[in-house]
């Protein structure tokens, strides 16, 4: 398909450009899912189109400022009052550019919204101020909160140099674990207020709203550790409920699942668990 080719060509082009390196501190990550790469390509296309328009418009403005200065003896041409032809031109050309931009955006959007045929479903619930992950049909559920060292360092006047804390404000006690090359569907809801689950490298951001269940999906192409944050103001500690995802190979993921399920059984067998402990607080192997 032409559009696929166009987008992959664009991705290849920009990904190989050294100034737009993968770990950028001033640009959107290319990311590790097909969607995040399409989104990156759309973003860069928009950026260059805007640059091109800016070059023309700012060029004319700067030319006018230099060329038509009163101090340089410029005489105003007061007959230049209106031109229907010009107005028509600068209405039509933007419309054409916008349609050209909207078509690939709409196509990507259709792909993003297609959550069918997921191989794994995880329900994500936002709490003030932590996330809960439930693997539907697998009897695994756990909370994910800011790691202790970050939490200590972020207290007012903690005296801890945050540069010494690993992944400051981006590390959690129990990351979400998902398999690589697998279409994972996430269902999002909020328990108290609205939160938003954002994983920049996956190109996924969706609100977790009390009383609603939202859907999104991702298919990660690369094993690794990825981080994101809550992106909807959710109260005092909004800045302190990060998201971390470990992407395992399919085999490692199966082993992890088995270990979790074993741990859950042990927890369930334990005498009189309090309601809060009924959800096994487990970790990756």
């Amino acid at each position: 398909m032409f559009k696929r080719k166009f987008i992959s060509a664009l991705v290849a082009l920009v990904a190989t450009t050294p100034v737009l390196a993968y770990e950028s501190s001033y640009n959107m990550p290319v990311g590790v899912t097909p969607i995040s790469r399409e989104v990156y390509a759309l973003h860069m296309t928009m950026f260059w189109v805007c640059c091109a328009i800016a070059a023309v418009v700012f060029g004319v403005m700067i030319y006018s400022i230099i060329k038509f200065r009163k101090s340089a003896g410029a005489i105003p041409d007061k007959t230049l009052l209106h031109s229907t032809k010009m107005e028509a031109v600068w209405t039509t050309i933007p419309v054409i550019i916008l349609i050209a931009l909207a078509i690939p955006a709409a196509r990507t959007l259709v792909t993003i919204e297609d959550t069918r045929n997921a191989e794994l479903t995880v329900k994500i619930t936002g709490y003030q101020w932590k996330w809960q992950y439930e693997y539907l049909g697998k009897d695994i559920a756990f909370y994910s909160t800011l790691s202790t060292d970050s939490n200590e360092a972020r207290q007012l006047h903690s005296g801890i140099d945050v540069n010494t804390v690993k992944d400051y404000l981006l590390s959690v006690d129990h990351p979400l674990v998902v398999p690589v090359d697998t279409k994972v569907r996430i269902l999002l809801t909020g328990n108290d207020v609205i939160h938003s689950w954002w994983m920049p490298d996956f190109g996924v951001k969706k609100d977790a709203i009390p009383g609603f269940i939202n859907e999104a999906w991702f298919k990660v192409l690369k094993v690794g550790h990825y981080t994101g944050q809550c992106t909807e103001l959710c109260g005092r500690d909004h800045g302190f409920m990060p998201i971390a995802v470990d992407v395992f190979s399919k085999e490692d993921f199966e082993r992890w699942i088995a270990a979790q399920q074993a741990a859950t059984k042990v927890a369930h067998a334990a005498p009189e668990p309090s309601p809060g402990e009924a959800i096994a607080m487990t970790s990756r192997p």
């Binding site: 418009v57 004319v60 038509f68 200065r69 105003p76 600068w90 419309v95 916008l98």
Partner: peptide
């Protein structure tokens, strides 16, 4: 939302053309 760029563009182009062949200070 994208449509809003059209009338906004018209305004920017008209301001720019107002400066064109003017006598600016």
């Amino acid at each position: 939302t994208m449509l809003i760029a059209v009338p906004t563009g018209v305004k920017v182009f008209n301001w720019t053309t107002t400066m064109w062949k003017g006598s600016l200070s």
